[in-house]
Design a protein around this nucleic acid. Structure first.
Length: 466
RNA sequence: GGCGCCAUAGCCAAGUGGUAAGGCAAGGGUCUGCAAAACCCUCAUUCCCCGGUUCAAAUCUGGGUGGCGCCUCCA
């Protein structure tokens, strides 16, 4: 597989450190609210990366942190009149509700900053010992310019940054580029004891500490939003490499932004949407499908119109699945002549899918392969010829295997109907046999209002729960 | 000011040198009591504009125009 490495700005062949294992660190959310559409993009993209690597046979260790202590947490907790810990507990639970509905699998480990204070303090101590950090009035800062190569990920010219930045009066930092590793506690804030007094960790250091603790000194892939490249990821590199003396991450993957009606999403512009908000209008899986419909490094535009298009496209993929399911109910047992040969030809779709995903996770192209596959399946199975249940079930598995990598077509209607609805369907079928179409259409409309859609197929009446 | 990205049909979108994938929408057809679903056909001689390189450019290059992002917390 090739990955566009943000550090070198080139597509590179992906080679994991250990042959069969891939270690990934992804920057997670600050848990002070429901997560928004912008947060959702990296969750979905990098969950897809993880699913794909697993599909290719790797054992993936995926670590995604929760930032559960910072200014936003403190402010929100004060507004709500609850503790920071209570706030974190609540929104971590809400994270899992939304993430799981989006098909985002739980990480191998979801470490929390506040549960890793020891590791954070250790790395800060190391950085001070090595001369990369200094204490000032109970704070600890990192000497950004001491780290050779500072700016190599974001390609920011550090001299210009340093020259252009304004040094505010009373600034206790040696240089404006220096950033906080540890912040002395202010009145009323949560704090932890440290060699520098009571305080709390800075934001950047938690990722360095937790990546090291759970994945080791050098990780394979580090993921996150493009906006985190500078300064957050740049700072992570400086911290981790100064402390450990080895390369921090071999590949950096950054997803692009999401816009709302072609505008940047922001609270002040009033176009700020949480995933929870959107899920009231559109199924979570539609949101996921939409996010995967263009390349992760391209900006993506969100609007109700575009989501409706995604919804219609996804419905097509569901219909294919439903068609196969209906057929299997009336199929012959045992493979029929020529069926295995047809199944072999389906392997072509799997290969094309892999080609697309191997090319820096080209999900848009991969989706087009699934659409082609769906058309082929519809053509083969909706023809008049009879097929065996083995054939249908194997073809369905091949189709769903690819869908599963993208985390779509997972909401399958396997449930059964209650007796009232079954009775209505029977009545309608009776009416149709009597050519009493007025009654039969009336019942069909009634069921539709109950979100049960009826399809009159050659092999009988089928239903789909909408 | 510094650093960087983007521009493909009504809409979404893939395509980094070889003659424009896929989806949505739309129109026509087959099937159907009617629908739905499915299938078939139609839907960019052309990829923002102007030059250049090449046998060949949406793809490389120079210059425009128009959007956008980062440099401060931010996915």
């Amino acid at each position: 597989m090739k990955i566009f490495n943000a550090e070198t700005r080139e597509k590179e062949l992906f080679v994991p450190i250990d042959k069969n294992e891939v270690r990934i660190y992804a920057c997670g959310p600050t848990v002070y609210n429901y997560f928004h559409l912008g947060n959702a993009r990296p969750f979905i993209i990098f969950d897809t990366l993880r699913r794909y690597l697993e599909f290719r046979g790797y054992n993936v260790k995926f670590v995604q942190n929760f930032t559960d202590i910072d200014d936003k947490m403190i402010n929100k907790a004060n507004e709500e009149g609850i503790t920071v810990a209570e706030l974190a507990k609540r929104f971590i639970a809400e994270y899992f509700t939304d993430a799981s509905a989006l098909g985002v699998k739980a990480a191998t480990v979801h470490p929390r900053a506040t549960e890793n204070i020891d590791a954070i303090i250790e790395i800060i101590k190391t950085l001070i010992e090595k001369g990369f950090a200094y204490e000032a009035s109970g704070d600890v800062y990192y000497r950004a310019q001491k780290f050779e190569g500072y700016g190599r990920l974001s390609h920011m010219p550090i001299e210009d940054l340093a020259a252009g930045a304004r040094i505010s009066v009373n600034d206790i930092k040696e240089s404006p580029l220096d950033f906080a590793l540890w912040k002395a506690a202010k009145e009323g804030e949560p704090f932890w004891d440290s060699p520098w007094g009571k305080g709390r960790p800075g934001w950047h250091i938690e990722c360095s500490a937790m990546a090291n603790k759970y994945l080791g000194k050098t990780i394979d892939i580090h993921c996150g939003g493009q906006d985190l490249a500078f300064p957050h990821h740049e700072n992570e590199i400086a911290q981790s490499e100064a402390a450990n003396g080895v390369k921090f991450a071999n590949y950096w993957m950054h997803n692009a932004y999401i816009n709302i009606d072609n505008q940047k999403m922001s609270k002040s512009a009033g176009n700020f949407f949480t995933v929870r908000d959107i899920s009231k209008q559109f199924d979570y899986e539609v949101i996921r499908f939409f996010m995967l419909s263009c390349h992760y490094r391209s900006p993506i535009n969100f609007s109700a119109e575009i989501l409706k298009q995604a919804e219609a496209g996804l419905a097509r993929l569901y219909n294919c699945y439903n068609n196969l399911k209906f057929l299997s109910e009336t199929a012959e047992v045992g493979f029929l002549e020529g069926e295995k040969e047809i199944l072999d030809t389906f392997g072509e779709f799997r290969e094309k899918f892999i080609d697309a995903m191997d090319d820096d996770l080209n999900t848009a192209d991969a989706i087009s392969v699934i659409f082609d596959f769906a058309r082929e399946l519809n053509t083969v199975f909706c023809a008049e010829s009879v097929h065996s249940s083995d054939m249908i079930s194997e073809a369905t598995d091949m189709y769903l295997e690819l869908c599963d990598v993208l985390g779509i077509v997972v909401k399958r209607s396997e449930d059964s109907l209650d007796s009232e609805i079954e009775e209505l369907i029977k009545q309608r079928t009776q009416a149709r046999e009597n050519k009493d179409y007025a009654t039969s259409d009336m019942i069909r409309d009634k069921l539709k209002a109950m979100n049960i859609e009826l399809l009159d197929t050659p092999s009988g009446v089928k239903w789909i729960r909408k």
